[in-house]
Design a binder for these strands. Structure first.
Length: 684
DNA sequence: CTAGGGTTAG
């Protein structure tokens, strides 16, 4: 019998187990480039995979389960119609115990039902989550003499996949005498879903070599496992060759993968070629832009989608909320909120809504959403905690974490970023250390660079520069630009010129074009009146052709976005704004405001006039907000750069003078100005 | 018997 196996069928029994990752550059590429010989059966695959541990599971002793003996006389007679019928009956009633009982009886009498009955039984096991019973059915189907059809083995494989027993599924798959497109696709999609991308792609290679043609199911599954652009391009052209690019599943998968690999132009062109519309394909392209911070394009597409007659669903709205979040469009976000009410129980959608309110600085709404959510996962809690922390409500954030410990899910690494941020914000050094140490000890979360970053920020605020340096040396990962910039920020606040120089040099070594490092360095030199060094920094910038990104602020008034860019006078009311600004500065000067000229140097490349900081974009936006919004309305501004010290002081004073609540969101933090103080505690 | 889109930080 073994001889028989070896001679006649072994090429079909080749295990499809996967070579180690380093084994080949791109097997997919090789196979696809030699495409065209799909009908040819390639039998030469066994060699390099013989050593795999999976092969151990293929010992000849187990092989007798398979039907490769070719001796059809071994097949026993089918069960009496009554037994098949009662099996089907119990399965349809989802009565698994009694169905299994029938199976017992059949086994005693050494009879078998037909494939349909077994597949129903397997469905029944799946519905009950009955792994043990499923395995019994498996044994029964392969018991002496019965030859399960490919269809039935596929069903079994699918069962193991659904039970998340991929190992079992693969063993069964390896042992199949014949694999059809469904067999391959089931395994590929199993690996794809399990994020075992390597395995999924390799299986596709073996599938090609086995002469089985992938269909749209296969492609849409394997695409999601594609991690390399070169592979994706090859797959894409193969898909076009076989004419499957118009399948909506394939199209949405293509868009997703191009987007995941950052190829938005490619994603767009795949989208644009769509003839027959499909709402998931729309959702895919909208998500692509929303996830890549192109909120404008996402919103634009959303409008086109509505115009094309497609209704938005949970997925659409989630992406739209994300677009609102990245553009800080609170008012539009509120309108989307109305649409969200229709999908009240959707966790992901609620999380996105929660985040939108946090990021747009409306904590009252965020808390309302959070408290109303019936289901909350680790993302809901993390979002709320980080939202509170970033908006300056550190104690509330930490209290929420305490209740999360009691009645919430297990915190993850992102939760801790919020916690440490809160400690940092409130200057809670010892608490910060406790949380930092507890991450690993209590929750098994290894601190990553971001967590070190939060701790550094915390130490920096407390002025503990030496401890910062010590911690940087303790880090289990290489310090990056952000790490050193945190140190540089602390040095600026503490006027430690020497350490600042050290940090800045580290940054510029890693990234010689880091604008921020130059600007911060020059500001530190300027503050200590070291003008020669200031000039040197400026020269270095000029040589490298580095320009500071112009400051820009946005404010939403009456559903319109008004942008203010430093030095740009195109706003229709710019003259009136400047007049009002000068009036405010006069009044504030009378109340003790002294413009902080150290920050003039933030605009190195601009005009070096003493009063250039007077026209910083956030000042214009604040004044415009005061002019155009009723007194009780919160003025919300979004900035592309960190706010400068002078504008920060200005905002605090004007919030008090005008009895206004002003919220400014910079790329990292939020500043809530009220009654002459800022939620950031004057450290950012 | 096999396939799709969405959420937290940096």
């Amino acid at each position: 019998m073994l001889k028989l196996i070896a001679s006649s069928r072994i090429h079909r029994l080749h295990p499809t187990v996967l070579r180690p990752a380093h084994d080949s550059a791109s097997p997919l590429l090789k196979v696809l480039s030699s495409l065209g010989g799909l009908s040819r059966r390639n039998t030469d695959v066994g060699g390099s995979i013989q050593k795999s541990k999976h092969l151990l599971l293929l010992q000849p002793t187990t092989l007798h389960h398979c039907s490769y003996s070719g001796n059809s006389s071994l097949v026993s007679s089918h069960s009496l119609p009554t037994e098949t019928e009662s099996l089907l009956n119990f399965c349809h009633q989802r009565d698994l115990p009694r169905a299994m009982h029938v199976l017992d009886a059949m086994e005693r009498r050494r009879v078998w039902a037909d494939a349909i009955a077994y597949s129903e039984l397997i469905k029944c096991c799946l519905a009950h989550g009955a792994v043990k019973e499923g395995k019994r059915v498996h044994r029964h189907i392969f018991s002496n003499g019965y030859h399960p059809k490919t269809f039935l083995i596929n069903t079994l494989i699918n069962m193991y996949v659904k039970f998340n027993l991929l190992e079992e599924a693969h063993v069964l798959f390896d042992k199949m005498p014949e694999r059809n497109v469904v067999s391959w696709t089931t395994m590929i999609s199993a690996y794809s879903n399990a994020k075992l991308n390597d395995r999924a792609v390799r299986l596709l290679v073996f599938m090609f070599r086995d002469g089985v043609m992938p269909n749209m199911f296969t492609f849409s599954s394997v695409l999601r496992a594609c991690e390399r652009l070169s592979d994706l391009k090859q797959l894409h052209s193969c898909i076009m060759k076989v004419g499957l690019e118009s399948d909506v599943f394939v199209r949405s998968a293509l868009i997703d993968v191009y987007s995941k690999l950052g190829e938005l132009l490619e994603a767009s062109s795949v989208f644009c070629e769509m003839v027959t519309g499909d709402s998931v394909v729309w959702n895919s392209i909208i998500a692509a832009f929303a996830q890549h911070s192109d909120g404008d394009e996402a919103l634009h597409l959303y409008k086109s989608m509505s115009r094309a007659g497609f209704r938005s669903d949970q997925s659409t709205l989630t992406s739209i909320l994300r677009a609102c979040t990245s553009l800080s469009l609170l008012e539009l976000g509120r309108q989307v909120h109305v649409l969200v009410l229709k999908f009240d129980q959707d966790l992901i959608l609620n999380n996105a809504l929660l985040d939108m309110y946090c990021k747009c600085g409306s904590l009252e709404d965020a808390k309302l959403i959070f408290n109303r959510m019936t289901k909350k996962d680790v993302i809901s809690w993390s979002t709320m905690i980080a939202g509170l922390a970033q908006n300056g409500f550190s104690m509330e954030a930490l209290n929420l974490f305490e209740s999360m410990k009691v009645k919430g899910p297990k915190p993850n690494h992102i939760t801790f970023i919020g916690i440490l941020f809160a400690c940092s914000h409130a200057g809670l050094v010892s608490e910060g250390w406790i949380y930092f140490r507890s991450m690993k000890n209590l929750y098994g979360v290894d601190p990553e660079r971001e967590h070190y970053g939060c701790m550094l920020d915390l130490l920096g605020r407390a002025g503990m520069l030496d401890d910062m340096v010590k911690l940087i040396h303790e880090m289990n990962c290489e310090p990056d630009v952000v790490t050193w910039r945190t140190l540089l920020d602390a040095c600026r606040a503490r006027q430690n010129v020497d350490l600042a120089t050290y940090a800045a040099k580290k940054i510029l070594k890693l990234d010689p074009h880091d604008t921020g490092a130059y600007v911060l360095l020059s500001n530190i030199y300027a503050t200590s009146k070291r003008w020669n060094e200031v000039a040197e920094v400026r020269k270095a910038m000029k040589i490298r052709g580095i320009r500071k990104e112009p400051g820009c602020s946005w404010i939403e008034v009456n559903k319109q976005i008004h942008a203010f860019i430093l030095g740009d006078k195109s706003h229709p009311q710019i003259d009136e704004i400047n007049r009002q600004l000068n009036l405010f500065i006069c009044r504030l000067t009378g109340a003790g405001y002294v413009p902080d000229t150290n920050f003039v140097l933030q605009d190195l490349e601009g005009e070096q006039r003493e009063d250039s900081l007077r026209y910083h974009s956030e000042k214009l936006a604040i004044v415009f907000g005061i002019m155009s919004c009723p007194k009780e309305k919160t003025i919300r501004i979004w900035k592309n750069l960190k706010i400068c010290g002078d504008c920060h002081k200005f905002a605090k004073l004007i919030a008090k003078l005008e009895q206004r609540h002003i919220v400014i969101r910079d790329p990292i933090r939020y500043h809530h100005f009220r009654d002459g103080v800022c939620s950031c505690g004057d450290y950012w």
